[in-house]
């Protein structure tokens, strides 16, 4: 299965009842898979007239209580920012998949990690955060869909799955059982008391992000900030490898983490004490991963961008450790040799 298809299948099994999307490479397999699979399970698929329409259909379904998803790639995600800001403001759960490609502008269709800032720092207008999860294998892409829908519902907040063109297109075998959970998860929506269902036997529900009364919007923002704080405390996730003895630690996510992992194992075979921190939640950024690592002398941040996650790593280590960086963007996937050449003076041949 490709990463795109695994994400789609994961969403179906996690109970996604509605999907709207607009074609854009390199995530088209996801939309095509949903077109076929949603019909099979009797759910709703719409090819929308634009990314804007898709995200606003998502808003409608979410307001009506359904588990809902849209997907796109970088330029399309930029178009969706209006809706994401409204979803955050209205406190509506949903899942948004970004299979990143090279930018800025129309860029190209090669893998990239240049939308990290947009995904983790808000993206649209206003003080808000989406929860951002970054899978680095096809299996993990499938598995994270369950967490994504759960987190979205638990916090009434948009969740972004941040993958890249490599992950989307790559084929790997995965465990993916079509269990009963597919239908169970789809029925969970009845528990949402705030949802718009028609005001039978209750007072009317209103979904909105507009608060004109003096002081009211500030009050709402404080509620949002309290929620974000809670998410930051409870939902950091990462994978740490060889951190007990590592002197040098690579920090990388998604596709870049696969390259870092290969490098790490190669260097360890040569007897070098190298480890890896792979953030899985990009927001909240896993600050806890950087705590209590007295043996680490240097962090090497690797990204397919010109240094976006780098800023969060610097904040995490508070200038107490050396933080170095290597990145390429615009569709270039770094090779192990060029990374070695930059950071390891002694010639190391893996």
């Amino acid at each position: 299965m490709t990463g795109n298809e695994a994400i789609a299948e994961g969403a179906v099994q996690a109970g996604c009842v509605f999907y709207a999307g607009y074609p854009i490479t390199p995530q088209n397999e996801l939309t095509a898979y949903m077109a076929k699979r949603m019909a099979e399970v009797g759910r709703i698929f719409i090819q929308s007239e634009s990314e804007l329409a898709a995200i606003n259909m998502v808003l409608g379904v979410s307001a009506a209580g359904g588990r809902v998803m849209t997907s796109s790639s970088s330029p399309g995600i930029s178009l969706k920012q209006e809706g994401i800001s409204y979803l955050a403001g209205c406190q509506l759960p949903c899942v948004i998949v970004n299979i990143m490609r090279g930018g800025p502008g129309l860029g190209n269709i090669a893998p990239s990690q240049s939308d990290y800032f947009q995904a983790t720092k808000g993206g649209g207008h206003g003080d808000y955060h989406s929860i951002v999860l970054a899978p680095s294998s096809v299996q993990e892409a499938f598995d994270l869909m369950f967490s994504a829908f759960e987190l979205a519902d638990r916090y009434r907040n948009p969740v972004i799955i941040l993958g890249d063109g490599m992950l989307g297109q790559m084929m790997e075998p995965i465990y993916c059982t079509r269990k009963k959970r597919t239908t169970q998860n789809a029925q969970r929506t009845t528990q949402k008391k705030w949802a718009l269902t028609g005001c039978k036997a209750r007072s009317p529900n209103i979904i909105r992000s507009l608060f004109l009364a003096e002081g009211k919007l500030e009050e709402i923002n404080k509620i949002l900030q309290k929620k974000y704080k809670k998410i930051q405390v409870q939902e950091q996730s990462w994978e740490g490898l060889f951190l007990e003895d590592a002197h040098t630690v690579f920090v990388a996510y998604g596709t870049m983490a696969r390259i870092a992992r290969g490098l790490m194992y190669g260097l360890r075979k040569k007897g070098m004490k190298v480890g890896l921190i792979r953030p899985i939640s990009l927001w909240p950024f896993p600050l806890k991963a950087f705590c209590n690592l007295p043996g680490v002398r240097r962090y090497i941040v690797l990204e397919m961008s010109y240094g976006q996650m780098l800023e969060d790593v610097r904040l995490a280590v508070e200038r107490k450790k050396s933080v170095e960086f290597f990145g390429r963007a615009g569709g270039g996937i770094p090779k192990e040799e060029e990374i070695l050449k930059k950071f390891f003076k002694k010639k190391v041949e893996l």
């Binding site: 509605f18 709207a20 719409i46 209580g65 979904i207």
Partner: peptide, 26 residues
């Protein structure tokens, strides 16, 4: 005095599409 959803400027019919498709009895 009934359920109401906000929509961004111009997006009302996209929001309505989502709601009606998901809840055709409403």
């Amino acid at each position: 005095n009934f359920d109401v959803c906000e929509a961004a400027h111009g997006r009302a019919l996209a929001v309505a599409t989502g709601i009606k498709r998901y809840r055709p009895d409403n």
